[in-house]
Amino acid sequence: RAAQGRTYGNLGNTYYLLGDFESAIAAHEKRLLIAKEFGDKSAERRAHCNLGNAHIFLGQFETAANHYKRTLQLARLLKDRAVEAQACYSLGNTYTLLQDYERAIDYHLKHLVIAQDLKDCVGEGRAYWSLGNAHTALGNHEQAMLFAEKHLEIAKRTGDKS
């Protein structure tokens, strides 16, 4: 049964990479079920993350957000800061797609704090970029400019020409 779970996970990932998001979701839902049977929180977190990703590419942003929220809860339970940051970043982007810019900002700020704690310059840059855009969308142009400047500063520091 444990091997079956892993196989569903591998199958889901393969379908996802092939662009067959519906089959990916079906496989990951089965993987999730088995992860819950075993009380395997780490596997459950991975399944929700993979499900969230597949739903994004189907344009099902609310469903994706729900999976990412569960991913975030599990990341906090597992005390995995990097994965918590990833979940916040995903939620920030998903809420931007949903045009809920205030929620997007909330999650991007959470991502920013963790990226800074973990000294993840790339993550920090992504957070500034996303925050700048979200503030622009809300018409907060001064705030947007501050974040854009921070983005530029860190991009120069990391040597990211693009």
Partner: peptide
Amino acid sequence: RTQSLQVDSVQRWMDDLRHMTEVE
């Protein structure tokens, strides 16, 4: 213009996401 500004950071995330899987 706001729409295109939003898209670039989200697009970059989606470009990365397209090839990302949480492996067993």
